[in-house]
Design a protein around this nucleic acid. Structure first.
Length: 705
RNA sequence: GGGGACGUGGCGCAAUUGGUUAGCGCACCGGAUUGUCGAUCCGGUGGUUGCGGGUUCGAGCCCCGUCGUCCCCGCCA
């Protein structure tokens, strides 16, 4: 059998009847009727039924066929024939024909798979047929078997088609696909980096890119004008269901363009990508400002598939007698609510008061929730008696209430808290009551983000990244309020309450960039150290440019209407960022560590003195406390004494089990009853050796916090 | 980093709430079976209940620890 001439199972049709074909694939199912024997042969394309009939095939072939088991890899040659009337299988694409086997070759036998690979319900088309629910851990451990399952395999193929669609389109629009380095420089801002130690440069590290951000901007300085890349990105953060430590972005950047160019380009791209999945997106994509999104949905990635928009009712209660509201308003708070139209039957008094007001809404961070139901044309609730007729009438008008409506209000002194809690409540209610229409798609551009957000230390940090252009340049980099009022030329593409991607128009002006770094509290020196190579590029005629990145994993999962991005990634990692298939990450041999200068094996290349020096450097680094030259000999002495004591203890310990503590654990108190401040603290010298300060605070190691 | 849940043959689950020899379905193995397609029928193998301690006459079940997985929050410029 010449396998290179084989046909794909699912491509066989009535037109092939009478032809001899060669097939290869895996045994999906077999049914031995004693003599007559059927198998479903599966390859990448799908299934076809192969029949072994002792009257058609020789005895040896039939004997081999009897030994077949699930997942044996086989090659078959035979004649395509019409199925006898009454034996067609309407649930199989190839159900009107079958292949009468002539020869059979077992290419590889198979151990029983750890879980069922055949998705028989696809064949049966029966509502009662459900695939076994296999734990995802097991699926990932045997991902190569999981990938044989038609649904996962089809996800991979669909992803491929989406990629090719993106490439074709961007090529049409004159974008150049360029690869940027995987081994690059650690950037201090943003998420945690994955670090790669350098063997050639001891104690130096590469970082895996969190995104190609700096490089794609350098490509613009480099005159490529239009760049894209399907780029792998790495972030060492804790995982969430739809987050992976390595993920894929379709990353693009263009010169001499503005926001409108990006909106047009990415809308067209997105529409084409969704069309691959047979989804027609509504156009044009609406735009909503960040402020409006927060004000009406409580989210910067609003789910616009359904209503439940926030209505502000703060002014209605300006003179209220209701104590809770009055106190909140006295503190400059606000009151917002949503009208859940015609759902009072599903939201009983009990559910509203005991579930929502007492449990669910507090879990969203709000202190409480006020609810009112429209019954017989009036507002009913547990606290309605505290409100004046005018207040109630105003509420009815403001929310345009009708019989059966339910009003849910959240009030708090903090605007952010009200919008955040009400936003979560909005989603909770919509999910619970099934208010989100199926098969609906609500793309939107979110624009005019704040450029900065306040940090805990009293400064500001970039909301997007420090290279994002602000909407105006006449700000004072030292005035926090001025900075927080700045908008950025950033934009996010959101769909159905998920962020598909985002980007911005970048800064290409040196002076402005420097001003931004000043605002971020970075000194000239820090800036040079962190971004020197990057800023230098902007001394040489950097063109105006901007771009965007789309999260491909989420995008593909959404197009294929799958809940998890792990279904569209060939070899995903689990929640603890490890790979159940390979076991990565794994320990490595000491020798390997030593070669990377990550471990001192204590060989002849380093003496004992060098080791002490090293451990003091390590301690100093761990504690983030500088050790100056006068202190160093003292600390060396102390460490040496501690080592000696440890050796002495080890030598005299005998067979005693080591103890964690010599004294029973108990609360320890300093003697006396008056507070004593450390004199060094009073003099402001307690942390004078801390190597870095920011916003008037000392930076200390996480272990000290 | 904080909180919650789970862990029982290869897989998915049960075990009347601490009481016989830990059951069931699928898978697997053997046999029967010439039109099945979730084939069917008959028979069979397979478990130190994640691991380590403890309480008890007795632990799958209770307690402590540990490992692993999942969910929520923090985190994710």
């Amino acid at each position: 059998m010449n396998l290179s001439q084989r046909r794909f199972c699912n491509t066989l049709t009535k037109a092939d009847v009478g032809n001899k074909v060669i097939l290869a694939g895996w045994v999906d199912a077999f049914r031995d009727h004693g003599g007559l024997l059927f198998i479903h042969l599966r390859d990448r394309s799908g299934l076809v039924q192969v029949v072994f009939n002792p009257e058609q095939a020789d005895a040896a072939t039939c004997r081999t066929a009897e030994s077949l088991r699930s997942e044996f890899c086989v090659a078959v040659s035979g004649m395509v024939i019409d199925r006898t009337p009454g034996t067609e299988n309407p649930h199989l694409d190839t159900g009107t024909i079958e292949v009468m086997a002539q020869t059979l070759k077992v290419l590889a036998d198979s151990a029983p798979p750890p879980f069922q690979i055949s998705e028989k319900e696809m064949v049966a088309g029966s509502v009662t047929a459900t695939r076994e629910d296999v734990s995802e851990e097991l699926r990932l451990q045997y991902r190569y078997l999981d990938l044989r399952r038609p649904s996962i395999r089809n996800n991979m193929i669909a992803r491929h088609k989406i990629y090719q669609c993106a490439r074709r389109f961007l090529d049409e629009r004159d974008f150049v696909e360029v690869e940027t380095p995987m081994l690059t420089m650690s950037t201090p801002e943003g998420a945690r980096d994955y670090l790669v130690p350098s063997r050639v440069h001891p104690h130096n590290f590469y970082a895996l890119p969190q995104s190609p951000q700096l490089f794609k901007q350098l490509l613009m300085v480099g005159g490529l004008e239009r760049y894209f890349q399907i780029a792998r990105c790495f972030r060492d953060e804790d995982l969430r269901p739809n987050r992976q430590p390595e993920f894929t972005q379709i990353d693009l950047e263009a010169s001499f363009i503005d926001e409108e160019f990006i909106y047009e380009l990415v809308e067209e791209l997105t529409v084409r990508l969704f069309a691959v999945g047979g989804i027609e997106l509504p156009r044009p994509f609406p735009r909503i400002t960040y402020d409006e999104a927060i004000d009406t949905t409580g989210s910067d990635k609003p789910d616009l598939r359904f209503g439940l928009r926030f209505v502000d009712v703060t002014d209605i209660f300006s003179d209220t007698q209701y104590t809770i509201f009055r106190q909140i308003l006295k503190r400059n708070g606000c009151i917002k609510g949503i009208n859940v139209k015609g759902q009072s039957e599903k939201l009983s008094k009990n559910v509203l008061q005991n579930e929502y007001a007492k449990t669910i809404v507090p879990s969203f961070g709000a202190k409480g929730m006020t609810w009112m139901r429209v019954e017989n044309g009036t507002l009913e609730s547990n606290i309605v008696q505290f409100f004046s007729d005018t207040e109630l009438e105003n509420l009815k008008t403001r929310f345009a209430v009708e019989e059966g409506d339910v009003l849910l209000l959240i009030a708090d002194a903090s605007y952010d808290l009200v919008t955040s809690a009400l936003g979560q409540l909005r989603l909770h209610i919509a999910n619970r009551l099934g208010l989100i229409p199926k098969n609906s798609w609500a793309p939107a551009w979110v624009t005019s983000f704040p450029l900065f957000e306040a940090t805990d230390e009293g400064g500001v940090s970039s909301k997007h990244h420090p290279f994002t252009a602000p909407d105006r340049t006449d700000f004072d980099p030292h005035n926090i309020n001025d900075l927080l009022a700045l908008k950025s030329r950033a934009y996010d593409l959101v769909m159905n309450g998920e962020e598909l991607g985002g980007g911005s128009i970048r800064i290409n002006d040196r002076t402005l960039q420097r001003k931004i770094f000043t605002a971020l509290g970075l000194t000239e020196e820090e800036t040079r150290e962190k971004f020197g190579f990057f800023l230098r590029a902007f001394d040489f005629g950097a063109p105006p440019h901007g771009g965007l990145a789309l999260g491909m994993d989420r995008l593909v999962a959404m197009i294929l209407q799958l809940p998890s991005i792990r279904e569209v990634i060939a070899f995903p990692k689990n929640r603890s960022a490890s790979c159940p298939l390979t076991g990565a990450p794994t320990p490595v041999a000491d020798k390997q560590l030593a070669e990377l200068s990550l471990l001192n094996l204590g060989n002849q290349s380093r003496g004992a003195a060098a080791q002490i020096t090293d451990s003091i450097s390590t301690l100093s680094w761990l504690a983030r406390i500088a050790v100056n030259s006068t202190e160093r000999p003292l600390i060396e002495k102390a460490v040496a004494e501690a080592d000696a004591l440890a050796d002495f203890a080890a030598a005299n310990a005998g067979s005693e089990e080591p103890m964690r503590t010599v004294a029973p654990p108990a609360g320890q108190r300093r003697p006396g009853d008056t507070a004593i401040a450390n004199s060094a603290a009073a003099a402001g010298e307690l942390l004078k050796l801390a190597p870095a300060t920011k916003g008037g605070y000392y930076k200390v190691a996480a272990v000290m916090e």
